[in-house]
Amino acid sequence: MVDEKQLRSIIEQVLGEMELPDINREERHEIHAAAADTAVSYKEEGAEEGVLPDISQVNVRTQYLVENPRNKEAFYEMKQYSPARLGIGKAGARYKTLPYLQFRAAHSAAQDSVFSDVDPEWIKKMDLFCVQTRCENKDMYLTRPDLGRRLNEQGVLAVKEKCRKNPQVQIYISDGLSSAAVMANAADVLLSIQQGLKSFNIETGTPFFVKYGRVGVMDEITQLTEALVTCVLIGERPGLLTAESMSAYITYKGTIGMPEAHRTVVSNIHRFGTIPAEAGAHIAEIIKIMLEKKASGTQLKM
């Protein structure tokens, strides 16, 4: 068996070798600088000092690895229009090692954000109470979407007991498929929606958090709180571009079993998409229009 130390030195060696021909000095410097912030340095008998670069910190938008390009600037400029992994070069018919590892890292981050929970400390700090759907764990959540659309018994009781009845607008937060997205964006979006609604003189109910929530559970919440408009801030299924994208689903007088087309959605909320504060302001206006027109989803013409 290879022990941990040997493994580290092998990885270090591989990274060292692969970096040299692929990355120019500035990019390498950038990676090292990013790594210095994130990696934990360690010290062992006989081990070298230093840190491994954190490949997940490489900005895919600025990464350009094609060797001997015909026109690097022109390609680079076009690349700026897309977040896709373009201009990453190749080794024979395959990926280069660095893009391949980055791809694996992004995939792992996506999986992590699905399988991890929202930190209870974060929920506490946001001053939210927490209820759960009928799912008992992540596995059940992933395999039984139907159970993620209903609150468990305690959840129903808690919402009935703690939430203000008949608010114009009920907002809540749910983990959905990305806990990372919720922790990165939900605070700013919530504050911004609340401020926006206040500027329109629209009152809101008591916000809370739903664990193992699917979008559909919002309809049960609408019925329990008797809110006119219900808005959930929920983590999107993560992709390889970002694991931190969040959506807001909004309904006017939702009911259990209503058509999905009656939901209005604002997606792509993250720091490289629509920034959370501005998204919240936009959502507040959508809610205002919904209340005026008494409709949501495809029935709402905006």
């Binding site: 911004s192 401020q195 926006g196 206040k198 920034i275 504060a277 501005e278 919240g280 302001a281």
Partner: peptide
């Protein structure tokens, strides 16, 4: 930068 709606609402409040 894309912050005008949030800023506008903050000013209105």
């Amino acid at each position: 930068r894309d912050i005008a709606k949030a800023l506008g609402q903050a000013l209105k409040v």
